[in-house]
Amino acid sequence: MLTSNRTETAVEIRPGVDRPDWSVVTTPAARAALGGRTAARAGLLDMWSHALEAAEDLVWRATLRIYGDSGRPPRIDEIADGANLSEDRVRALLRKLQLRDLIGLEPGTDTIRYAYPFTQAETGHLVWLKGKVMYALCAIDALGVGAMYRADAPVQSTCRMCSEMIRVETSDESRALLRVSPSDAVVWYDFAYGGDAAASSCCPTIAFFCSSQHLQGWLDEQMPRRQGVSLAMNEALEVGRAIFGPILREPSSEI
């Protein structure tokens, strides 16, 4: 079910669980990022505008739980065991999830290539979770991992302009920042969306920068000009929490 309060558009992904979670968004820049995302990515919103069927949701959550626990994409048999479904049923449901741009499969196979926020591609955005190191599809995905798994998940990446190392540590199960190096590092949240997947359109340009000056230098070189929002790290963390925090949340018992 699609719910909306002016720019605060959200989808009820299961009873009592809305995505994005606007309750964690306190800064104007994070609000502008999520609002601009909705306006610019109408195609993505269309795919997300209806809640998943119960079996689709079950497979989606099983996929991400196993991915987070093992540090790699789960196999069909592992998802089938986790969801208590047949392997053939899982294969069919994974294809449906791909049509909703929630996972990506290797062409012509049933092998999972990515499941937001994780990917097998070497994106440069590294996340530490449960003793495993994984790649995230973009800077916001990396910052959203901890909220999704209710854990502190350190992030390491590099400045898109100069390749300086950037490190982000969180506290309180990724509800707050603990340490950012360099301290004035920022995130560019790009609004681009094309084709049928965020992974190949906006994700490659949602990136970390060591400073606002280097972000501006990078933007000045882009043709055509990029559309998006510059976010301080606390603002980027709010966006990551809002998008990924609800994904594994159980349905509300009050619904």
Rank of each mutant, 00 (worst) to 15 (best):
Y67S: 01
I103C: 08
A142M: 04
A207Y: 13
Y189K: 09
S212T: 05
K132Y: 03
E8G: 05
A32C: 08
P20T: 02
Y67N: 05
G124T: 03
L215N: 03
D81E: 09
G108C: 01
A242C: 02
G146A: 10
V133I: 12
A51F: 06
V145C: 11
W48L: 15
M233L: 11
D81S: 14
L85T: 07
A139F: 05
G146Q: 08
I206A: 12
V133E: 12
E87C: 15
R65D: 00
R75D: 11
S163W: 13
S157H: 07
T170C: 10
R91G: 03
M223L: 15
A30H: 10
P73W: 10
R150F: 09
L231N: 00
T9A: 11
F191H: 13
E173Q: 08
G104R: 15
S200K: 09
Q156I: 05
C203I: 00
T158V: 11
M134V: 06
F118C: 08
P107M: 11
F208L: 14
R241L: 12
L64F: 13
P28N: 00
I103M: 08
E78G: 03
S23A: 14
R167F: 03
S212Y: 12
L215P: 05
A153P: 02
G35T: 03
W22F: 10
D88H: 13
Q216K: 06
S183K: 09
Q156P: 00
S163P: 01
V24L: 11
A236K: 05
P73E: 02
M165R: 15
Q120A: 14
F191L: 02
D57P: 09
E173T: 12
R226L: 14
A192T: 14
C202R: 14
A197I: 02
T205Y: 15
R72A: 11
